[in-house]
Amino acid sequence: MGVLVGAPPLTVQEQVVLNYRTAVLCFSGLDFATTLLKAIAVLASTRDSMWLSLAVLILGPLCGMLGAKTLNRPLVSVYFAFCIFKAAVEIAFAFYTMWQWNVLFVVMQGWIIKIVATFMSTLDGISALRRSELLELKDVPVHMVYW
Rank of each mutant, 00 (worst) to 15 (best):
G125I: 02
V42Q: 07
V106W: 00
V145T: 15
D31K: 02
W51N: 04
T34W: 04
T35F: 00
L43Q: 12
D124P: 00
A41E: 12
L4A: 08
P141H: 05
Q100E: 08
C26Y: 07
T46M: 05
L57G: 12
L137N: 03
I126H: 05
L52T: 10
G29H: 01
S77G: 02
A41T: 09
A44Q: 08
S45E: 13
S49F: 10
Q100N: 07
A23Y: 11
I113C: 05
L30C: 14
Y20I: 05
D48S: 15
V76A: 15
A128M: 09
G110H: 01
V76F: 05
D48R: 10
A33L: 12
L129K: 12
E133H: 10
L135P: 01
G6F: 03
T22W: 03
K114P: 00
T46F: 02
V16P: 00
F82G: 15
L129P: 03
M120V: 12
T46P: 01
S45N: 11
G125L: 12
L54N: 10
W111M: 11
C26H: 09
P61K: 04
L30K: 07
A68N: 12
F82V: 10
I91Q: 01
I113Q: 06
P141S: 02
I112R: 09
L104Q: 07
V16A: 07
W111R: 08
L75T: 10
G110E: 02
W147Y: 07
S28M: 06
I40R: 01
K38V: 03
T11Y: 02
K138V: 12
K38C: 04
I58Y: 02
Y79G: 07
L134P: 03
L62W: 08
R47P: 09
L59Y: 12
V56H: 12
T11C: 00
Y79W: 14
L104K: 13
V16N: 01
F32K: 01
V107Y: 06
K38Y: 07
Y146L: 14
F82D: 13
A41L: 04
I126N: 03
I91E: 00
P74W: 06
E133R: 09
